[in-house]
Protein backbone atom coordinates (compact mmCIF):
# COMPACT_ATOMS: atom_id res chain seq x y z
CA UNK A 1 0.00 0.00 0.00
CA UNK A 2 2.74 2.46 0.96
CA UNK A 3 4.64 1.37 -2.14
CA UNK A 4 1.71 2.07 -4.44
CA UNK A 5 1.34 5.63 -3.19
CA UNK A 6 5.11 6.11 -3.48
CA UNK A 7 5.15 4.93 -7.10
CA UNK A 8 2.14 7.13 -7.86
CA UNK A 9 4.15 10.01 -6.39
CA UNK A 10 7.07 9.11 -8.67
CA UNK A 11 4.77 9.10 -11.69
CA UNK A 12 3.29 12.48 -10.79
CA UNK A 13 6.77 13.96 -10.19
CA UNK A 14 7.81 12.56 -13.58
CA UNK A 15 4.91 14.25 -15.35
CA UNK A 16 5.51 17.48 -13.41
CA UNK A 17 9.18 17.41 -14.42
CA UNK A 18 8.26 17.04 -18.10
CA UNK A 19 5.80 19.93 -17.82
CA UNK A 20 8.32 22.16 -16.02
CA UNK A 21 10.99 21.37 -18.61
CA UNK A 22 8.48 22.18 -21.35
CA UNK A 23 8.01 25.56 -19.67
CA UNK A 24 11.66 26.26 -20.49
CA UNK A 25 10.97 25.85 -24.20
CA UNK A 26 7.53 27.35 -24.48
CA UNK A 27 5.75 30.07 -22.61
CA UNK A 28 2.09 29.40 -22.13
CA UNK A 29 0.37 30.26 -18.87
CA UNK A 30 -1.69 27.05 -18.96
CA UNK A 31 1.47 24.94 -19.21
CA UNK A 32 2.87 26.57 -16.06
CA UNK A 33 -0.46 26.14 -14.26
CA UNK A 34 -0.67 22.48 -15.31
CA UNK A 35 2.91 21.88 -14.11
CA UNK A 36 2.15 23.42 -10.74
CA UNK A 37 -1.10 21.45 -10.31
CA UNK A 38 0.55 18.15 -11.15
CA UNK A 39 3.35 18.95 -8.72
CA UNK A 40 0.85 19.81 -5.96
CA UNK A 41 -0.85 16.48 -6.72
CA UNK A 42 2.50 14.72 -6.45
CA UNK A 43 3.24 16.50 -3.19
CA UNK A 44 -0.10 15.47 -1.63
CA UNK A 45 0.40 11.88 -2.81
CA UNK A 46 3.90 11.96 -1.35
CA UNK A 47 2.56 13.20 2.01
CA UNK A 48 0.06 10.35 1.88
CA UNK A 49 2.84 7.84 1.18
CA UNK A 50 4.90 9.11 4.11
CA UNK A 51 1.87 9.04 6.45
CA UNK A 52 1.09 5.48 5.30
CA UNK A 53 4.60 4.46 6.05
CA UNK A 54 4.54 6.27 9.38
CA UNK A 55 1.44 4.29 10.37
CA UNK A 56 2.75 1.01 8.98
CA UNK A 57 6.20 1.30 10.58
CA UNK A 58 5.17 3.04 13.76
CA UNK A 59 8.04 5.56 13.63
CA UNK A 60 8.95 8.69 11.65
CA UNK A 61 10.12 7.20 8.33
CA UNK A 62 13.51 8.83 8.00
CA UNK A 63 15.72 6.12 9.31
CA UNK A 64 17.12 4.43 6.21
CA UNK A 65 18.30 5.53 2.77
CA UNK A 66 14.93 5.08 1.05
CA UNK A 67 13.06 6.93 3.74
CA UNK A 68 15.66 9.70 3.95
CA UNK A 69 15.75 10.30 0.21
CA UNK A 70 11.99 10.17 -0.04
CA UNK A 71 11.60 12.61 2.86
CA UNK A 72 14.28 14.86 1.36
CA UNK A 73 12.35 14.99 -1.95
CA UNK A 74 9.15 15.74 -0.05
CA UNK A 75 10.65 18.69 1.84
CA UNK A 76 12.26 20.06 -1.34
CA UNK A 77 8.93 20.00 -3.18
CA UNK A 78 7.15 21.48 -0.17
CA UNK A 79 9.59 24.37 0.24
CA UNK A 80 9.67 24.91 -3.52
CA UNK A 81 5.87 25.13 -3.71
CA UNK A 82 5.96 27.71 -0.93
CA UNK A 83 8.40 29.92 -2.84
CA UNK A 84 6.60 29.42 -6.15
CA UNK A 85 3.28 30.57 -4.76
CA UNK A 86 4.89 33.42 -2.89
CA UNK A 87 7.16 34.81 -5.64
CA UNK A 88 5.29 33.57 -8.74
CA UNK A 89 8.48 32.10 -10.17
CA UNK A 90 7.35 28.92 -11.89
CA UNK A 91 10.51 28.84 -13.94
CA UNK A 92 12.43 27.92 -10.78
CA UNK A 93 10.62 24.58 -10.93
CA UNK A 94 12.36 23.75 -14.20
CA UNK A 95 15.54 23.50 -12.13
CA UNK A 96 14.28 22.22 -8.77
CA UNK A 97 11.61 19.67 -9.75
CA UNK A 98 13.92 17.53 -11.94
CA UNK A 99 16.30 17.37 -8.97
CA UNK A 100 13.47 16.32 -6.66
CA UNK A 101 12.53 13.65 -9.22
CA UNK A 102 16.12 12.34 -9.29
CA UNK A 103 16.15 12.09 -5.51
CA UNK A 104 12.79 10.29 -5.54
CA UNK A 105 14.03 7.87 -8.20
CA UNK A 106 17.05 7.26 -5.98
CA UNK A 107 14.62 6.51 -3.14
CA UNK A 108 12.84 4.05 -5.45
CA UNK A 109 16.05 2.24 -6.36
CA UNK A 110 17.34 1.52 -2.83
CA UNK A 111 15.61 -1.22 -0.77
CA UNK A 112 12.22 -0.08 0.38
CA UNK A 113 11.08 -2.70 2.90
CA UNK A 114 10.16 -1.60 6.43
CA UNK A 115 12.60 -2.92 9.02
CA UNK A 116 12.27 -2.79 12.78
CA UNK A 117 13.69 0.45 14.13
CA UNK A 118 17.29 0.51 15.29
CA UNK A 119 17.06 0.77 19.12
CA UNK A 120 19.52 3.69 19.13
CA UNK A 121 16.99 5.78 17.23
CA UNK A 122 14.14 5.15 19.59
CA UNK A 123 14.02 8.61 21.09
CA UNK A 124 11.90 11.72 20.98
CA UNK A 125 15.01 13.63 19.85
CA UNK A 126 14.70 12.07 16.43
CA UNK A 127 11.86 14.47 15.59
CA UNK A 128 13.60 17.74 16.38
CA UNK A 129 16.99 16.60 15.07
CA UNK A 130 15.95 15.09 11.76
CA UNK A 131 13.11 17.42 10.89
CA UNK A 132 15.39 20.42 11.43
CA UNK A 133 18.15 18.77 9.38
CA UNK A 134 15.81 17.92 6.51
CA UNK A 135 14.27 21.38 6.58
CA UNK A 136 17.74 22.90 6.33
CA UNK A 137 18.61 20.53 3.46
CA UNK A 138 15.50 21.54 1.55
CA UNK A 139 16.16 25.27 1.96
CA UNK A 140 19.80 24.83 0.98
CA UNK A 141 18.75 22.86 -2.09
CA UNK A 142 16.47 25.68 -3.19
CA UNK A 143 19.21 28.22 -2.48
CA UNK A 144 21.62 26.14 -4.58
CA UNK A 145 19.15 26.08 -7.48
CA UNK A 146 18.50 29.78 -7.15
CA UNK A 147 22.25 30.51 -7.05
CA UNK A 148 22.70 28.48 -10.24
CA UNK A 149 19.99 30.49 -11.99
CA UNK A 150 21.57 33.68 -10.63
CA UNK A 151 24.88 32.74 -12.24
CA UNK A 152 23.17 31.95 -15.55
CA UNK A 153 21.13 35.16 -15.54
CA UNK A 154 24.11 37.26 -14.48
CA UNK A 155 26.14 35.67 -17.28
CA UNK A 156 23.43 36.54 -19.81
CA UNK A 157 23.34 40.13 -18.59
CA UNK A 158 27.10 40.55 -18.63
CA UNK A 159 27.64 38.96 -22.02
CA UNK A 160 24.54 40.63 -23.46
CA UNK A 161 23.10 37.30 -24.55
CA UNK A 162 19.49 38.18 -24.20
CA UNK A 163 17.81 35.14 -25.64
CA UNK A 164 14.46 33.52 -24.83
CA UNK A 165 15.83 31.84 -21.70
CA UNK A 166 17.00 35.24 -20.40
CA UNK A 167 13.49 36.57 -20.83
CA UNK A 168 11.99 33.62 -18.90
CA UNK A 169 14.37 33.60 -15.95
CA UNK A 170 13.46 35.86 -13.03
CA UNK A 171 15.26 39.07 -12.16
CA UNK A 172 18.50 39.05 -10.18
CA UNK A 173 16.72 40.84 -7.36
CA UNK A 174 14.09 38.11 -6.89
CA UNK A 175 16.75 35.39 -7.10
CA UNK A 176 18.84 37.21 -4.53
CA UNK A 177 15.82 37.61 -2.27
CA UNK A 178 14.80 33.94 -2.46
CA UNK A 179 18.40 32.84 -1.95
CA UNK A 180 18.76 35.04 1.12
CA UNK A 181 15.48 33.83 2.60
CA UNK A 182 16.56 30.21 2.09
CA UNK A 183 19.74 30.97 4.01
CA UNK A 184 17.85 32.83 6.70
CA UNK A 185 15.58 29.80 7.23
CA UNK A 186 18.06 27.03 6.50
CA UNK A 187 20.97 28.23 8.62
CA UNK A 188 19.13 28.38 11.97
CA UNK A 189 17.55 25.02 11.18
CA UNK A 190 20.96 23.47 10.53
CA UNK A 191 22.24 25.05 13.74
CA UNK A 192 19.35 23.61 15.75
CA UNK A 193 19.84 20.22 14.07
CA UNK A 194 23.49 20.22 15.10
CA UNK A 195 22.73 21.35 18.67
CA UNK A 196 19.89 18.87 19.20
CA UNK A 197 22.10 16.21 17.59
CA UNK A 198 24.84 16.98 20.09
CA UNK A 199 22.45 16.77 23.03
CA UNK A 200 20.97 13.56 21.70
CA UNK A 201 24.49 12.17 21.14
CA UNK A 202 25.46 12.90 24.72
CA UNK A 203 22.40 10.92 25.86
CA UNK A 204 22.72 8.06 23.36
CA UNK A 205 26.48 7.77 22.84
CA UNK A 206 27.73 9.44 25.97
CA UNK A 207 29.53 12.32 24.27
CA UNK A 208 28.38 15.60 22.72
CA UNK A 209 30.77 15.49 19.84
CA UNK A 210 32.68 12.46 18.65
CA UNK A 211 33.98 13.64 15.23
CA UNK A 212 31.80 11.16 13.46
CA UNK A 213 32.12 11.82 9.66
CA UNK A 214 28.55 13.13 9.53
CA UNK A 215 29.30 15.54 12.36
CA UNK A 216 32.51 16.72 10.74
CA UNK A 217 30.97 17.28 7.34
CA UNK A 218 27.90 19.00 8.71
CA UNK A 219 30.20 21.30 10.66
CA UNK A 220 32.05 22.18 7.43
CA UNK A 221 28.70 22.85 5.76
CA UNK A 222 27.66 24.95 8.73
CA UNK A 223 30.84 27.07 8.46
CA UNK A 224 30.28 27.71 4.75
CA UNK A 225 26.76 28.97 5.34
CA UNK A 226 27.87 30.88 8.42
CA UNK A 227 30.51 32.65 6.32
CA UNK A 228 27.91 33.44 3.64
CA UNK A 229 25.43 34.86 6.13
CA UNK A 230 28.13 36.77 7.96
CA UNK A 231 29.33 38.34 4.72
CA UNK A 232 25.79 39.21 3.78
CA UNK A 233 25.00 40.86 7.09
CA UNK A 234 28.26 42.78 7.48
CA UNK A 235 29.32 43.90 4.00
CA UNK A 236 26.20 43.03 2.05
CA UNK A 237 27.98 40.20 0.29
CA UNK A 238 25.99 39.00 -2.72
CA UNK A 239 26.33 38.52 -6.42
CA UNK A 240 28.32 36.02 -8.42
CA UNK A 241 30.91 35.06 -5.82
CA UNK A 242 28.26 34.64 -3.17
CA UNK A 243 26.29 32.48 -5.63
CA UNK A 244 29.32 30.28 -6.25
CA UNK A 245 29.85 29.83 -2.51
CA UNK A 246 26.15 29.02 -2.10
CA UNK A 247 26.52 26.28 -4.70
CA UNK A 248 29.63 25.01 -2.85
CA UNK A 249 27.60 24.96 0.36
CA UNK A 250 24.89 22.99 -1.39
CA UNK A 251 27.41 20.42 -2.70
CA UNK A 252 28.93 20.01 0.79
CA UNK A 253 25.45 19.63 2.23
CA UNK A 254 24.63 16.99 -0.37
CA UNK A 255 27.79 15.12 0.53
CA UNK A 256 27.03 15.46 4.24
CA UNK A 257 23.58 14.07 3.64
CA UNK A 258 24.14 11.32 1.06
CA UNK A 259 27.86 10.89 0.42
CA UNK A 260 28.82 10.34 4.03
CA UNK A 261 26.17 7.63 4.41
CA UNK A 262 27.21 5.91 1.19
CA UNK A 263 30.99 6.01 1.40
CA UNK A 264 32.15 6.76 4.93
CA UNK A 265 31.09 4.38 7.68
CA UNK A 266 30.33 6.07 10.96
CA UNK A 267 27.88 6.38 13.81
CA UNK A 268 25.21 7.88 11.52
CA UNK A 269 25.14 4.90 9.10
CA UNK A 270 21.81 3.23 9.61
CA UNK A 271 21.14 2.00 6.13
Amino acid sequence: MTQISFYLTLALYGVATLLYLACLLKTTPCLATAAQRVLVGGFLMHCLAVIHRFIAAGYLPITNMHESLSFFALTIVGVYLFFESRYKVGILGSFIVPFALLISIGAGIVPMEIKPLNPALRSAWIYSHTIMAFGAYAFFTISGGVATIYLIQSHFLKKKQLGPLFVKLPSLDILDDIGYRCLAFGFPMLTIAIITGAIWASRAWGSYWSWDPKETWSLITWFIYAALLHGRLTTGWRGRRAAILTICGFLFMLFTFIGVNLWIPGLHSYT
Binding site: Q153, L157, L162, F166, S171, L172, D173, I174
Partner: peptide, 8 residues
Protein backbone atom coordinates in the same frame (compact mmCIF):
# COMPACT_ATOMS: atom_id res chain seq x y z
CA UNK B 1 13.37 45.92 -19.53
CA UNK B 2 17.00 45.15 -18.74
CA UNK B 3 16.77 47.15 -15.53
CA UNK B 4 13.74 45.10 -14.54
CA UNK B 5 15.75 41.92 -15.06
CA UNK B 6 18.30 43.27 -12.62
CA UNK B 7 16.15 45.04 -10.05
CA UNK B 8 12.86 43.21 -10.28
Amino acid sequence: ELAKKIFG
